[in-house]
Design a binder for these strands. Sequence first.
DNA 1: GTTAGCACTCGATAAAGCAGAGTGCTAACA
DNA 2: TGTTAGCACTCTGCTTTATCGAGTGCTAAC
Lengths: 344, 344
Amino acid sequence: MEMTERKEKILAAVVEKYIQTGEPVGSKSLVDILGFPVSSATVRNEMAELSEMGYLEQPHTSSGRIPSSKGYRYYIEHLMTAYEMSPVEKGLINSKLMESSGDPQSVLEKTGNILADITKCAAITTTPSDVEAVIKKVELVPIGTRTAMVVMLTSTGILKTRVCRTVSEITIDVAESFYNIVKSNFVGKPASELSIAKIQTLALSLGEKALVMTPLLVALSDAAKMTERTELLLEGQTNLLNHRELEYNAFELMEFLRRAEPLNKVFSSYSGKDGVPNVLIGNENMFKELQNSTMIFSKYSIGNHESGTLGIIGPTRIDYARLIPSIKYLTEVVGIILSDNLED
Amino acid sequence: MEMTERKEKILAAVVEKYIQTGEPVGSKSLVDILGFPVSSATVRNEMAELSEMGYLEQPHTSSGRIPSSKGYRYYIEHLMTAYEMSPVEKGLINSKLMESSGDPQSVLEKTGNILADITKCAAITTTPSDVEAVIKKVELVPIGTRTAMVVMLTSTGILKTRVCRTVSEITIDVAESFYNIVKSNFVGKPASELSIAKIQTLALSLGEKALVMTPLLVALSDAAKMTERTELLLEGQTNLLNHRELEYNAFELMEFLRRAEPLNKVFSSYSGKDGVPNVLIGNENMFKELQNSTMIFSKYSIGNHESGTLGIIGPTRIDYARLIPSIKYLTEVVGIILSDNLED
DNA sequence: GTTAGCACTCGATAAAGCAGAGTGCTAACA
DNA sequence: TGTTAGCACTCTGCTTTATCGAGTGCTAAC
C-alpha cells in the first residue's frame, strides 16, 4: 500500500483539524475541509488505509480518527508548511530578552518564560555547561570591611558571584595574596580543580593568613561549583493543566520534570546538528511518562560549542507548524546573546 | 449558648480528625477518639450546638461535620498545642539555607523551596523592600576591555549586579570618572533617584565621555530598579494539585498567584507584630479566589525594618499545629541571615 | 474507482434504584 | 436535668439501565 497525493491531503487535514479542535476527525467533516469533490465514503476508505499504514488511529471502534505518532511525524517531515514568526514578534522577543540582567541564568529564565508563554507548554532550559571551560578571571569586590564578593569568569563567558564574610578584616594585603594565590593556582585551569581538598592543602601553606583566606577561597570554590553544574530551569509548568488530553497525566508529568536526570539523558541522546529542533512525539520518547507528550528541543551554542538545551514539553496535539520555527528562532537568539559575553 | 470544656474537646477532635482524614467526621467515630465515656447521641447533641454556634458545618444534611473557618480559628487560638520543629529539623533547614549564594533573592528562593517542601503547599516569598534604602556603595568590576560588571550595595544590605558592554574601552580614566559621578550624585541617595531621565541630563555634561559612560550608568540604573521592585517568588505551586479539596480550585488558585498585586495587597493589610504569623482561613480572606484556602504568612525583618513576607497558601484543611511554628521559625532564620549582610 | 445505503459499535448522558453513613427527634431513664 | 436508645429520614456514591448520536465498515450498485 503506497502513499498517494490524496492520502497525504487527507492526513494533513486530519492532523490540522485535530490540532485545532482536539476532537477525533470524522469522514464527513473532512469532505468539507478538503478542496476536491469526493464523498465521505471515499474518504472513509482512504482513512481505513491510512489507519492500516499506521498513520491514523481510532480512540474506539466507532469514532473519528486521530493522528498517531507516526502520522504526526509524516506530517512534520513531508506535509507541514512552517509558520515563521513575524518580524514584529521577533522584535518583541528580542527586547524582552534584553531586559534580563545579562548573565546566562537570567537570560535562560527569561527565555523559558517567553517559550512557555508563546507555546502554552512547559518550557525547559538548561544552563550552559562546557567541559572545556577554564577559569579566566577572578575578582574580589569589597563590600564591607569583613565582607567581600568573589567574582569568577570562565572562558565560556559564564559569570558567577558569591558573597562571603571573614573573621578578620580584608586588608589590601590580604586581597593581594588572594589574587596571587588565584593567579598561580587556578587561572587557566578548569573550574573542577577548585576543590575543597585543594583549598585545604593550600591553606596549610598559608600560615596565619589561612584564617582570613579560607572563606574567600571557599566562596570561590562555591562559585566554581555553580559553573560546573548545569541546571535545569522549568517555566510554565502550570500550562500543562490547560491541555485536556493531559488531564490525568499532567501531575505525573510535572513530577517527572522535577527529576533532572531523565531529562538530561534525553537531551544528551540527541545531537543538535544544523540547529534543527529535535521533535519527539508520543511513543518516540524513551520514558513511559512521556508517552502521551511531545518534546521539542534544540541546542544553543556559545561561540562554537554546543552548550545547552532549550525546549518545551506538551501534548502530542500541538501546533507544530508554528512552534518548531519559534523554538528554532529562540535557540539562535539565546546563542547570540550568550556568545556576546565571550568577546572582549 | 456557651462553650463548655466538653464542647471544646469535641471541636478539637473534629478538627484534628478532619485534618488527618479529609472526611467529614461523624458522631460515632468521635466517641472512639474522645477519652470519656459518652454515647454517640450525646456527642450528636453537642455537635448540633457547635453547628449552631458556627464552629462546625455540614457539607450536606446527612453527613458528618467539618470545621468552619470560625471553628479552625477557635482551634488555633484556644485548643491547639503547637508542634515545634525538632533541633535536627532546624539544623537541616539552616544548612540548606547556607547553600544559597547569600544574596537575598537566592536565600528567599531557597526558603520558598524549603517551605513548599515541608508544608506541601505553595510557598510565597517577597524580596525585601525598604523605602528608606539608600545607595551605600557602587563598584565597577572589569570583565573584559569593553565589558564590566556594576555592583550596587544598599543600606539595607541588598546587593545587585549587572553586566554591561560599552562601545569603547573602559580605561582606568573612565572608571575613575564613573566613581566620581556616582559618589557625587548617587551615594547616600535613595535608589529611586537613579532614573533614566537623571542619567540623560548627567550625560549632557559629560561631553565626549558620555558615549562610554552612559551604558555604565544605565546598568547602574537597572540595578537600582531591581532593588526597588519587590519581587514575588513562588515555589511548589504544583503541590496544590495534591490536595483533593482544592481539585477544582487549584488551577484558578495558580492563576491568582501569578498576579502579584492582590497578594501584595493582602500582605500589606496585615502587620507582622510580635513575629506571630498571620493566619487567614477560608472566608476570612478578602479575595473570592481564596475562599477555600488558608494563607499563613509572616514578615521577616532585616535589621529592625520589616522588609518582606514569607508564607504559604494551601487548603483550609492543613496541619496548623505543625505549620504555624515552622513558618515562624523560617521567618526568624531568614531575618537573621539577611541581616547578616548589614553588619560591616 | 466511487458512492449510497444500512446495520452496527461505542461513548456520553441521563434516569432510576440501592446501600450505607449519619443525622435529628422523641421518649425513656438515672 | 443531662444522657441514652431507637427509629425514621436524608443525602451521597455507586451501579444498572436506557437512550441518543456520531461515525464506522461493509455490500451492492453505479
